[in-house]
Design a protein around this nucleic acid. Structure first.
Lengths: 194, 194
DNA sequence: GATAAACGACACGTGTCGTGTCGTCAGGAG
DNA sequence: CTCCTGACGACACGACACGTGTCGTTTATC
């Protein structure tokens, strides 16, 4: 029934004020205590304006994350696979460590299928594609087993990060990240190189 | 100020009614829509009684999960390490797949440090201990590299499950679980067996 | 410059939260 | 067996955030 708004007439300044207010409030009070009302008040904006363009608080934070995302852009390729993986994994660890926006959206998406779809399509899947793209190059270069399953590779490399996040086991530091990468690569490399 | 209640005089029947109502409602409407008020109404109990013994909805669901937890009990040991790991991982996958209680508590704990502490102490850590206990036996039997880091092993094996849960990548089936275990074990086994 | 619609403001009903109050009832202590 | 403390069910309460509706005002497109 409610006719969809016309994006051409959308106020860009309001949009940016909303995202800015969301970021500030989220880092101040945390994602859990973040409310639409507070965002509207801080941004000097009517609640109606927020609800006109976003379905939920999670969607706003998701868009905020998307604004500053370098994730999905082309993955690093220095020739050193382990180093490149370390770079990519570190970026995720940083996002999940910096403030509560990242973990907040993930936690909300666990109970909100619509938000989950948005999250996957707009942030996760591009990251996965970039990751697999990098691994495929390594495979072509003979650095990985030719039959290696890239889904397994993804799970082995990124799994530990989300495991430790979900269960509050402490986020991995650089050294431990290196150890994880070493082990994962061992599982994906031909057993007898020599 | 609020004096702590006396557990000796606690009504066991109310407690069980609350947990039962929580389970029924959670599977009906999902964890996200579960409310303390609804639990109280369904259990025929005053809200005050719930708040007297639990600090939050998450704590109630956590206790419910603890009631039916086989997780922390002694891990299986058939002699076949891969098969035992498959059994253990399958149990977690089942819990996270069955209803929304498991993922609900995990998602809530991401934004609630107190709940996170309870979750880790009462469910996660015992499970980790049992897992490491089983792996240590495998290590003693020479099935694992003597220097293998059991924290890495934990991350490689359980990580993929939580990774796929958090990012809605689809929970692994038995076959894929087997593939993950094979790869993880390859990373933890002496490189040149022969 | 006209006009349609997005905007800020504000009010509204709803639902849930967490707490307070009160009379009742049960189960340990003596 | 009786007393008496305190947990119980019931209900009311204020606070808060939700999501929607209304109404002038403003703004950007045509």
């Amino acid at each position: 029934m409610a006719k969809p708004p016309n994006p051409a007439r959308r106020s860009e300044s309001s949009r940016q004020a909303i995202l800015a207010a969301t970021g500030e409030l989220c880092s101040q009070v945390g994602y859990g205590r973040l409310t639409i009302e507070a965002i509207a008040a801080r941004a000097g904006v009517s609640k109606k304006t927020i609800y006109r363009w976003w379905p939920s608080k999670g969607a706003v934070v998701l868009e905020l994350l998307g604004e500053t995302a370098t994730i999905a852009t082309a993955p690093p390729d220095t020739g050193d696979l382990a180093a490149d993986l370390h770079t990519m994994l570190t970026e995720i660890v940083d996002i999940l460590t910096r403030d509560s926006a990242g973990t907040g959206v993930i936690s909300e998406a666990l109970n909100d299928p619509d938000l989950a779809r948005d999250l996957r399509e707009r942030l996760i899947q591009p990251g996965i594609d970039a990751f697999k793209q990098r691994l495929r190059r390594a495979q072509d270069a003979g650095r990985l087993h030719p039959d290696a399953d890239l889904d397994v590779a993804l799970d082995l490399l990124y799994g530990p990060i989300y495991h430790r996040m979900a269960l509050h086991l402490g986020m991995p530091g650089p050294a431990y990240l290196g150890s994880l990468i070493t082990h994962a690569l061992r599982a994906l490399t031909p057993p007898t190189p020599h």
